[in-house]
Amino acid sequence: MNFVFRNGVLKYVAANYFRSQCTATKLNAPSNRIVHTSSTSYDLMEFFDDKKNWNETNIKVGRAWKLDELRIKSNTDLHKLWYVLLKERNMLYTMEHECKEKVRLFPNPERIDKVQESMKNIETVVRERNIAYYQLETGETGERPVEEVVNLFGLPEKYEKSEYMVPKFMNTKWVKPYLEHGLINSIAVKKFYRLYKEKLHNESRKARNRDYNHVQQLLKRFPDMDLEKLREQYPNVDIEKAMRTKKARGHYFPKY
């Protein structure tokens, strides 16, 4: 992250791009480019919609930013767009809250979804670039490392690693209860794990029996069925065995 926006600082610089209803305006297309040369009012009034939209019941906006459109933007553009969307989202949240307070209908609530989708797409693109950069420089993705651990219930879990102030072995507050209750040593965990495995086993056994019975019934009702298809659909069932059972024999004279 630090590398992608090496020159970025937390400062809102996109003020002269566009304001409300901007979700779909294109930055690069010169015809669509909206550049306000007058100074934008940084104000608490930015938390509210344009005055002309206050009493509207239907506010028309464009669509959300798509991934492909964002991929061709520079980092700076994305950074600016992020703050535009952030302000837009705050504005929409504020208006929605006010409408709720005053028991009014919030016009076009899908605007919030569009902004959120755009923001999600920006994050995806930034992440892609970050991964590409890290793979070039270090050969790793630079993503958060994930480790397979045994959790408190004795089950395998994917643990997303994070930084700690204290190393693991020194962290008595964590180690003691983990060793006492967490590992499979504990009787309670062992019992739980045994019952859990039994449950899983029962489920798979029931599924197997169900399939077997179902195949028998199918064979009874459709004796000339395509066996290859059947085998494909129920790979775990022994079809030859199912054909020989009593259940699979229909109410007709058997062909010997």
Partner: peptide, 11 residues
Amino acid sequence: FLPNFWMKLVH
């Protein structure tokens, strides 16, 4: 760089 915080101004 990309703060995800939201704030809404309330009455």
